[in-house]
């Protein structure tokens, strides 16, 4: 597993840890029902304070992406991938569309030009 942590991001470290783990689950690095590394393992491997790792993990617990099995550790929930997908669909507008429109404005691209490009993107991706 690899963590891409960005020290120049405004996002606090624990949120970055949560997102990296979520990414690993979404990209099938960990299957549904599979155990994820413990706080200590992640803390050791990436030299991150265990309290920070735990805070990040607790976010995924509250979003029901991972769950604690008493005495055994943390496991990926049954519908984790579907949950991540729905969450990311909801965030798609603010994460991508808003930024795209903003950038298009800076570049003097018209609405129609942007729509044409999206069309082209779909065609070439088929």
């Amino acid at each position: 597993m690899q963590f891409n942590l960005d020290d120049n991001s405004q996002e606090p470290l624990y949120l970055q840890v949560a997102r990296q783990l979520e990414d690993a689950i979404f990209l099938k690095g960990f299957d549904e029902g599979e155990q994820v590394p413990s706080t200590t393992e992640i803390s050791k491997q990436f030299h991150i304070n265990p309290a920070t790792v735990l805070k990040g993990m607790n976010i995924l617990v509250s979003e029901e992406i991972i769950e604690k099995h008493r005495g055994l550790g943390m496991f990926v929930t049954k519908n984790a991938r579907e949950r991540i997908k729905v969450k990311r669909q909801n965030e798609f507008y603010s994460d991508y569309i808003q930024n795209m429109v903003e950038e298009a404005r800076k570049l003097n691209l018209s609405k129609q030009q942007l729509l044409d490009m999206i069309e082209r993107g779909f065609e070439e991706n088929e």
Binding site: L5, L13, T40, K44, I48, N49, P50
Partner: peptide, 26 residues
């Protein structure tokens, strides 16, 4: 990290290698 998780205690690290401890210190 390992020994701290196993037996929590206070560590005070004085260092010039800030990048290396940036994520370790609370």
């Amino acid at each position: 990290m390992d020994t701290y998780a196993e037996r929590p205690r206070t560590f005070v690290i004085a260092t010039h290698l800030i990048e290396e401890i940036a994520h370790i210190i609370e």
